[in-house]
Structures are given as C-alpha cells and as structure tokens.
C-alpha cells in the first residue's frame, strides 16, 4: 500500500504537533523544572520537522537509489514487476483481522477452535489447497496447545474443546 510522501509526511507532522501539544499540557512534578512533559514535547517537535521535510520530498534521492538497487536485482531474477491489482493490498488485512478475531473469540470458543479457524482462513488466503489446509487446521492448534499449555504452562482458555491434558 504505497501512499504519497505528501500524505505520510502530513500525517507525521500532525501526529508530532498533537504529541507536542498534549505532552506540553501534562502536569509537572511539583518542585521540579523538568517532568513528564519534556520528552514528548521534544519528540513531537522533531516529528513535525521530519514530517514537513518528508512532505517536501527532501531525502527522496536516498530512497530512489535503494529502490533502483531492488529493481535491478528483480530484473536480474527475471521477475517482471507486475503492478498489483487496485485493491489487492486489502488481502494484507487478513492477518491482523484474524488476530482481532482471536482477541474477541478465544474466551468464548477456546484456544483450539479459534486457532483452527485462523489457520484454515490464512492457509486458504495463501491459496493452499484444502488437502493442506484442513490437516494443518486440525493438528496445528493441538501441537501449539501442547507446547504452550503443557510445556510452558500458559493458561490458554479451554472453551468448547478442552484438551485432555
């Protein structure tokens, strides 16, 4: 997901301004000149400067060079650079989405079913065949459960399918 430098620079500058403002309003420690506000204020101001410089395209030449290196090595590999389809980067949202699913479902469903859903979904997203994905989804969570619950004693929620150990 490539965003123009103008936008990322503006976002960083805005973030820095917000941090500097919010940081400077933090209550001081009584009797001290420097308190919890000093550090975020300094960082915020630094981010404003960086954000503006990025938006102005300063330092771009260093990146062009690195990109040229990468492009050259890909060309040498015979990989043609195919521009990705417009919304294909949305596929990248699958892993974080599955993690959030884990957060909200694991207490109700239990570890093994939740992890099985995650594995199945991601394996299919990687265009794995069901012949690979299904056994992975069944065996993977049980192995991970054995390792973390039994060996490392992490209290994974049992939920609907408690394990015999």
């Amino acid at each position: 997901m490539v965003i123009s430098d103008r936008i990322t620079g503006a976002v960083i500058a805005a973030l820095g301004a917000a941090a500097a403002y919010a940081g400077s309003r933090l209550p001081p420690v009584p009797g001290q000149q420097v308190g919890p506000s000093a550090f975020p204020t300094v960082i915020g101001l630094g981010l404003v400067v960086c954000g503006v410089l990025v938006a102005l395209g300063i330092g771009r030449s260093f990146e062009d060079e690195a990109e040229a290196d990468v492009a050259a090595s890909e060309e040498a590999k015979g990989l043609e650079h195919v521009p990705p389809a417009r919304l294909s980067w949305l596929r990248a949202a699958i892993p974080p989405g599955l993690l959030l699913f884990y957060v909200y479902a694991v207490d109700a469903l239990g570890f093994v079913p939740t992890a099985a859903v995650m594995i199945l979904a991601l394996a299919l997203a990687f265009r794995g065949s069901l012949r690979v994905a299904l056994p992975m989804a069944v065996l993977g969570p049980i192995l991970v459960h054995l390792l973390f619950y039994k060996l490392l004693r992490v209290p994974l929620p049992p939920g609907l399918v408690p394990m015999p150990w």
């Binding site: 973030l15 550090f39 975020p40 960082i43 915020g44 260093f62 990146e63």
Partner: peptide
C-alpha cells in the same frame, strides 16, 4: 532508505515508549 524517514520512524518509536505510567511524573500519559 531516506534518512529523514528513518529518523521519523525512530521518533515514532520513542513516542510509543511514552505511553503509560512509567514516566518521571508517574502520571498516565497518552
């Protein structure tokens, strides 16, 4: 990469570390 972007990334990391109570004032920050 661009050194300015690298510094920005580093500053964002420092900003993230500001979150929480573990600061000189012991007050909730961000």
């Amino acid at each position: 990469s661009s050194p300015i972007k690298a510094i920005a990334a580093m500053l964002i990391g420092l900003l993230v570390s500001c979150i929480g109570m573990e600061n000189p004032g012991g007050i909730p920050r961000f």
